[in-house]
Structure formats: C-alpha cells, structure tokens
Amino acid sequence: MPKIKTHSGAKKRFSLTKNGKVKRAQAFKSHLLNGHGKSPKRKRGLRKGVYADVTNEAAIKRMIPYK
C-alpha cells in the first residue's frame, strides 16, 4: 500500500506531543502587534502555543500521518 501524502500546510502549523495531543500557535499574533488596541499582557499571552480542540484533532492527525 502506498504512503499517504502529508498536508504541507498542516506540517508547518501543527506538531504532536508525546501524549498524542496536537499543539498549535495562536491566531492574531503573527502581525498587527503594534498598537491596534492590544495590551502588552495580551500580546505576551498570544506568544504561547496552545492545544488544538479535540473536535479537530482527528482531522489534523490525518493531515500529518508521519509526524
């Protein structure tokens, strides 16, 4: 049986933990961090990674089968 192709976009955005949870970066942090009504505390918090919701976990794991 042939190998499954990995989704290139998902490969760059998600990683799996040892326990099988899916880790992701938070949205609204990659740009627009100067001004725009965000407090320094909020911007600091957005740097941290978070776990993807369990409802999306199966779909993400299908996209990154060998990670």
Rank of each mutant, 00 (worst) to 15 (best):
N34K: 09
L33I: 08
V50S: 14
L46N: 09
G45P: 01
G49E: 12
K43G: 08
A25W: 13
A25D: 11
G35T: 01
H36M: 09
L46K: 14
P40G: 15
K38A: 06
G20F: 08
G49M: 11
H36W: 05
K12I: 02
F14I: 07
T17L: 11
K38T: 02
P40M: 03
K38R: 11
V50M: 10
S39N: 09
F14W: 11
N19T: 13
G49C: 09
K43H: 03
K18M: 04
R42A: 15
L16Q: 10
L16G: 06
L32V: 05
R42S: 14
R24E: 08
K23D: 02
S15C: 06
K18R: 13
S30A: 03
Q26F: 04
R13C: 02
N19L: 07
N34P: 00
F14P: 02
K29E: 05
N19D: 15
K48T: 09
V50G: 08
T17V: 06
L16T: 10
K38G: 00
K41A: 14
A27W: 00
K21C: 11
S39E: 08
R13K: 07
R24F: 02
R47A: 14
V22E: 06
L33C: 02
S15T: 12
K21T: 12
K12D: 03
H36C: 06
K18G: 15
K12A: 07
S15K: 13
L33A: 05
R44K: 15
G20E: 11
G49R: 14
K23T: 04
R47H: 14
P40V: 05
H31N: 05
K29I: 04
K18L: 05
R24M: 13
F14D: 04
L33W: 06
S30M: 00
K21F: 10
L32A: 10
K43Q: 13
G20L: 09
K41V: 14
A25Q: 14
